[in-house]
Design a protein around this nucleic acid. Sequence first.
DNA 1: TTTATTTATTGCAATATTACGATAAATATG
DNA 2: CATATTTATCGTAATATTGCAATAAATAAA
Lengths: 110, 110
Amino acid sequence: MGATKSENFTEKQNQMAIMLKALGHPARIAIMEFLMKTDSCICGDIVNELPLAQPTVSQHLKELKSAGLIKGSVEGTAICYCIDEKALEILRHYFGGISEHLEKRKNNCC
Amino acid sequence: MGATKSENFTEKQNQMAIMLKALGHPARIAIMEFLMKTDSCICGDIVNELPLAQPTVSQHLKELKSAGLIKGSVEGTAICYCIDEKALEILRHYFGGISEHLEKRKNNCC
DNA sequence: TTTATTTATTGCAATATTACGATAAATATG
DNA sequence: CATATTTATCGTAATATTGCAATAAATAAA
């Protein structure tokens, strides 16, 4: 016990959970918002922006990347990280769909 | 160490992280999808639907509720849980905004 | 090649999460 | 009230996450 029982859920459910879990930390939300708001995407800039040590930020970036939310490219000695638009489109569609569905059937019982 | 340093992030960032973290588990995604797809919202039905023991499901429901994603109401000896539309609207708006923003400035560097 | 700069990895301590059996709490029904 | 039904809580073991100092790895520039 202790570990998530992923094998009993659908591929899609696990995929959504992985992406949302990656976003379920304020530092990673802050990283995504920084990448969105600024034109810069150099890792060092992100480290300066966040109230966390460099190794911690590096770890958060790794998690966002492995969840498919950002991608990185080498830029000299620096690394440029960007939001993966495809992932964001999946999220937008997912929550858009739920909202629309709830809108349609106004039979909320609570 | 070990605990998230929430105090160094904005209220909004923490709020988003709390909601998304709550959705960052396949069982909780499955619960949300069940509540969306069926007319039922009885806790017992959710327990039957999920491949997890009743106390585990109860715990997941508690997390979704404390994150503001669902609300529950007593229905005799049963409890009826429903999606909180307001929370879903916040999520829809958040990801819609990011997607739109990315769409606008097509200058992705990666 | 040596040095500087930038990012990643390792190792570890502190804390949080996940899951479930046992049991309690709450409410309905006989 | 006693019993059945349904959900919540407690206690605990297994596992995962968070954060950082120390250090390694990678690349650029001198």
